[in-house]
Design a protein around this nucleic acid. Structure first.
Lengths: 298, 298
DNA sequence: CGCGTTTACGCCTCACGTAAACATC
DNA sequence: GATGTTTACGTGAGGCGTAAACGCG
């Protein structure tokens, strides 16, 4: 029995499938399979039931799982406690972010990360918050920076920054001085993000507070397109505040008064609570310092 | 960092020297040295100071030691908890016993052990209790069955049996019916075991209770020789009760009345408290069932 | 036929032991 | 020189990935 075998077992048991787990432990699928087989012979117990379409934990596997985790966590703590200096990170890191992050702080962050950790292969994965969260839970991502806190108890999160959004529309849609209220949405559709995005929750909360019953929506998963559609006068929507203000000074967008003002959208680093790799703790700190939604827009 | 490296480190740190530790982990001296070197580079810390004649723990090594032990213990517990059946023991086992054990229950025990655990290489080491205890503490022995409980806090023990001894002497030394008292020792020397033997403590306690001030002694570390000397009328001494009775029925020894009677000498399995190998727990049970000082004498 | 896991096979690292060297007392 | 640890070196096991095979929906 080795720590590597236990590690392979743990992630195989808690990821969506062996392939995802193999990526996480930097192993080929076949090697992962063999390590688990080795562990099984070493313990004299079958840990996975391979009868069905997918490998599923046996009773012995379920018994082993928490023990394996605590042993791995202890080993990690030992390693961290002994290390003379924060180690340089290495291996693959799948990093989930929303599109807004991808367009603001992410590029600079990836660059800085590459300088500090040349051996770390970061793979940014841009997607909608809800999807990223599921991928995180299933092992497809190592960390994700998404809006809000997770409802999933296996996922831990740490707030890092708040993004500000404002309502906006083209002047021909909302003449200067017009207040935004429920009546506006009778005449104009809402240009918004797809379900599962953090901003969608933000908008829904606002609409509910305003008792706006039903809204026509134009959903788009690309902020660039959303901004373009708003400028073109297709409807009313929200944009990150710095972007909206830039367009407003050019006279291409109007920022109507809205009460209550849109709440800030809190972003948090998310990670699997059972992931004790030093990678996680280190990234958490690095991300916290880097997130800045006012940064350059690409 | 691997469990094997930590194991090598732990025993290297707590045994008398690397050579002893190497035997315990079934490794050559050079391989042990390399494993420790690997661990040092893996942790980025020097664990042993090799400047002097012997390798001595550095500050980092001292920090690591308890953590390594708890991790190894956890790994062992996991292994034991998962094992479907008590595993067959394997490897080398240095087994310390007093000479009395060597002449009574030990041979039969070694035979039985060989049947149940063919892959276990048992090496009986016969010696005086105090010496065995020191070897145990320094890693030279895995377990020892010796008289009394250990005073050393790093050594755990579990009582297994009591051996009975009786005073005896040749008829020409102590005619039948003569009581044993202090006066006898003015005329005859005490034939006893060397300092550090369990029976020596037993005798000293008795002499002190009888207020016998000073005694001439003939010490010998071989029971066979002691018995022979007693039969030859060289002095007064103690023998295991079954042996003495056998000689008494032949009329070659006399068993004088003695008040108080000699106390029984309790024997216990001893092992290093920090030794979490399954070997120890298994042997403890096996030994407890096997020890019998009334068994055949060889 | 797609998805998920295992088997087959060749490569190559690395862990091992023997033996010699080195260092300290 | 005795004791204790490391270095040098040749060997073999086994961990690795690629690619093919297998087995279930």
């Amino acid at each position: 029995m080795t720590l590597k075998q236990l590690e392979a077992f743990y992630w195989a048991a808690t990821c969506r499938n062996f392939a995802v787990a193999a990526q996480r432990v930097n192993l080929s699928l076949s090697s992962l399979s063999k390590r688990i087989a080795e562990l099984e012979t070493s313990l004299g117990q079958t840990l996975f039931d391979r009868a069905g379409h997918r490998a599923v934990l046996t009773e012995a596997g379920h018994r082993l799982l928490p023990q394996a985790h605590s042993l791995l966590a202890a080993a990690e703590a030992l390693r961290a406690g002994m290390a003379p200096a924060p180690a340089e990170l290495r291996g693959r890191c799948r990093f989930g972010v929303g599109e807004l992050s991808a367009l603001t702080w992410l590029p600079r962050f990836i660059k800085a990360l590459g300088v500090r950790h040349p051996a770390l292969a970061v793979e940014p994965v841009v997607g909608v918050g809800a999807v990223l969260e599921r991928q995180l839970a299933q092992g497809g991502l190592d960390v994700a920076v998404i809006a809000g806190r997770s409802s999933h108890c296996g996922i831990a999160s740490q707030p890092v920054a708040e993004a500000a959004f404002v309502w906006c529309a083209a002047p021909e849609v909302l003449p200067v001085g017009v207040r935004l209220d429920a009546a506006v949405f009778d005449r104009w559709p809402l240009v918004s993000q797809p379900a599962g995005a953090g901003t969608t929750r933000l908008i829904d909360d606002w609409l509910r507070a305003q008792r706006v019953p039903e809204v026509r929506r134009i959903d788009c998963n690309a902020w660039g397109a959303v901004a373009g559609m708003l400028v073109e006068g297709l409807g009313v929507g929200i944009l990150p505040e710095p972007w909206a203000r830039a367009r407003a000074t050019e006279g291409r967008l109007v920022l109507p008064a809205a009460r209550p003002a849109l709440a800030g959208l809190p972003y948090a680093v998310h990670w699997r609570r059972d992931d004790t790799r030093p990678l996680i703790a280190a990234l958490q700190a690095e991300v916290a310092a880097a997130v800045d939604f006012a940064a350059a827009r690409y």
